[in-house]
């Protein structure tokens, strides 16, 4: 009889891990809270760093699922998870339950709720939007207009909204927003060639392959402006434009600029689902709320509960590329576990 793996969450991590686990011969079930798979990816039209289309990745993942036998339960809600001997009993609503020999938690992230930074005016000033809202505007494929309905001439991007921010208790870097800011600025410039675009940043963290090149290209070829300074507050003018107040920390001068639209590059937070599952399974969390592995170097993906593994953005912010890598890494660990090769038996000598 095939051993059973239950994957909680049907985003990139959950989909890719399920394909691979199924290919290894395990009986896999995905529990997805929504009516469709794909997670946040389905809301993203174009991806950094190569500006390829988001739905290409979705179709890659879906095709994998078509090739393998994976059971998917949509709109599922987990009420309880019980450990019975070496198995887990996952009780869904309507009293339905599934058993699992191993669980992969792939519950992902939530975008930072920009309402929590009231000083930036999201939800108060019409023309303050988030990077997520801008993706939706891109998806509509029409002429780019501000929420007030005008064609923006000057646009400001605000980096690190909800990331590296002591005031909202998020000390970590969300990894993907810097390059998203560069990517979205370039897209906007392509769509509105006469627009002036400013990115207000703390540090540009261009850590991954081709990120730095993209950053340089955005300046040289697209003429995007980058100003080092953190937004202190935003105001609205009578004609609904946004006044940005920052300190330009490279020239050490206060700077005030009026833009037609302000885009907040919102960061990642552990999703509500991640926190719920962590509570149900008593999983260790970091101070940030992201899941904590048994050892930061040698035990990534391995939780404090035997047979429970996790991967993807439920363990910390990461880009799509690393999400794939992490999902596949978790599959290897689950495979070892189910074949009774225990990583934990290897000794750490200090």
């Amino acid at each position: 009889m095939n051993k059973k793996v239950v994957v909680i969450g049907g985003g990139i991590t959950g989909m890719e891990a399920s394909v691979q686990l199924s290919a290894l011969g395990y009986s896999v079930t995905i529990l997805e809270k929504e009516g469709q798979l794909g997670g946040h990816l389905k809301d993203w039209t174009v991806l950094f760093p190569n500006l390829r289309k988001g739905n290409e990745i979705v179709s890659f993942l879906e095709h994998g699922l078509e090739l393998q036998e994976v059971n998917i339960i949509y709109n599922s809600k987990i009420n309880e998870i019980k450990k019975i001997n070496k198995h887990y009993e996952i009780i869904l609503d309507k009293q339905k339950s599934i058993t699992a020999d191993a669980i992969l938690v792939a519950t992902g992230f939530d975008l930072f709720d920009a309402h929590r930074k009231e000083e930036f005016g999201y939800g108060i000033y019409e023309n303050v939007i988030t990077s997520y809202d801008l993706e939706k505007i891109f998806a509509q494929k029409g002429e780019i207009k501000t929420p007030s309905g005008i064609k923006p001439k000057r646009i400001g991007f605000i980096h690190c909204v909800g990331s590296r921010d002591e005031k909202v208790n998020n000390h970590y870097c969300s990894n993907v927003c810097c390059v998203t800011g560069v990517k979205q600025a370039m897209e906007l410039k392509t769509l509105i060639p006469d627009a002036e675009i400013f990115n207000f940043y703390m540090d540009m963290r261009m850590f991954d392959t081709h990120f730095e090149e993209l950053y340089l290209e955005s300046q040289k070829k697209y003429g995007i402006n980058f100003i080092r300074g953190r937004l202190s507050e935003a105001n609205e003018t009578i004609d609904k434009r946004i006044v940005i107040k920052v300190e330009d920390t490279l020239t050490s001068r206060p700077l005030k600029m009026t833009v037609d639209m302000m885009v907040l590059l919102v960061g990642m937070e552990p999703s509500k689902g991640t926190k719920e599952i962590a509570n149900l399974l008593n999983l260790k969390m970091r101070e940030s709320g992201f899941l904590k592995p048994e050892d930061d170097h040698t035990m990534s993906n391995v939780s404090n509960m035997a047979g429970v593994f996790f991967a993807g953005t439920c363990s910390g912010p990461m880009s799509i590329k690393y999400t794939f890598t992490d999902a596949r890494a978790a599959v290897t660990k689950i495979n070892c576990f189910l074949k009774e090769y225990e990583l934990q038996n290897r000794i750490l000598v200090n």
């Binding site: 009231e118 000083e119 005016g121 108060i124 000033y125 507050e233 105001n235 609205e236």
Partner: peptide, 9 residues
């Protein structure tokens, strides 16, 4: 209050 524009508005 400048950090809570809901109030000033």
């Amino acid at each position: 209050s400048h950090l809570t524009p809901g109030i000033t508005r």
